[in-house]
Simulated scan of single mutants.
Amino acid sequence: MDTSDLRLAVILASTRPRRRGASVAAWVMDQTRTRDARYELIDLKDHPLPILDEPAAASTGEYAHEHTRAWAAVIEPYDGFVFVTPEYNHSLPAGLKNAIDYLWAEWLDKAGALVTYGNGGGLRSGEQLRTVLSAVGIAHVRPQVVLMNRTDFDGYAATPSVHHEHGLTGMLADLELWAAAMRGVRAAR
């Protein structure tokens, strides 16, 4: 399957001043350079959104605020997403949940994949994120890359093993297949 026309985003979910996520996202982006699909980085730190303040539900598509319309314009062109997210207090970061909640149609019938990290590998964050992604209509692939703070980082720098590189390669291949398939789903709507 030709995936060269796919446009995929790596979403860096942590917005903390000191964060491991930047090095994880850089590692993911580095691994995408040899792929046919086009990957771009979206750092949520560059898109600060207030706590959800839209008067209408996102599913109406009636965005009252310019910050929502700007965020929608960022997300809309992509066919799929790699969410690079930590686990904070057994859950996903509030900024990521907020950014997802702002939109509906821009997420609907697209593909998603997860790279999680934390003391427990970000597994609970990933589980909760899958529920949220399902609710907005993102078809998420089964493989997930899981990085442990104690073994896969040197301080704040990610040091994933070859085993993680293989896992990421397989996950990205699945994401690209699903992203291509979801184009057909969007066209049929």
Rank of each mutant, 00 (worst) to 15 (best):
G184Q: 05
A94V: 12
E106F: 00
F153I: 11
Y39W: 11
V24D: 05
G167C: 08
L129F: 01
G120R: 14
A135S: 13
G122M: 09
P86W: 00
L103G: 03
R183W: 14
S91M: 13
R33C: 10
L44R: 02
K97I: 14
P86M: 09
A135P: 02
A99H: 04
D174P: 08
L133I: 12
V185S: 12
D30N: 00
R69C: 08
I75M: 03
H90F: 15
D46T: 13
P50R: 06
F83E: 00
P160Y: 07
H47S: 15
T15V: 15
A94W: 11
V146D: 08
R7L: 15
L96Q: 03
Y39C: 01
T85D: 00
W107V: 00
M1H: 14
E127H: 08
L172P: 00
R189N: 12
L168A: 07
A113Y: 02
A56S: 14
W71D: 05
D174R: 05
T159S: 13
A57I: 15
A72F: 06
D109Y: 14
G118Q: 07
D2Q: 09
S4C: 11
D46S: 12
A73L: 06
T60C: 08
V74T: 15
F153G: 06
M1K: 13
R18V: 12
V10C: 06
L108C: 08
R38N: 10
G120D: 06
R38A: 07
E176P: 04
M171L: 15
L49D: 09
V145L: 09
R186N: 12
H164F: 10
K110W: 03
A26D: 05
A111R: 04
D30A: 02
S91G: 15
L103Y: 00
L168G: 01
Y39G: 01
V145Q: 07
V185C: 10
W27C: 02
R186C: 10
L52F: 14
P160T: 05
A26G: 07
P55A: 10
A157R: 15
E106H: 04
S23M: 04
V145F: 01
A37P: 05
R150Q: 15
A9S: 07
R38M: 08
D174K: 09
G167Y: 03
L133V: 10
H65A: 13
Y39K: 01
A37M: 06
K110E: 08
A58E: 01
D46W: 07
L172N: 02
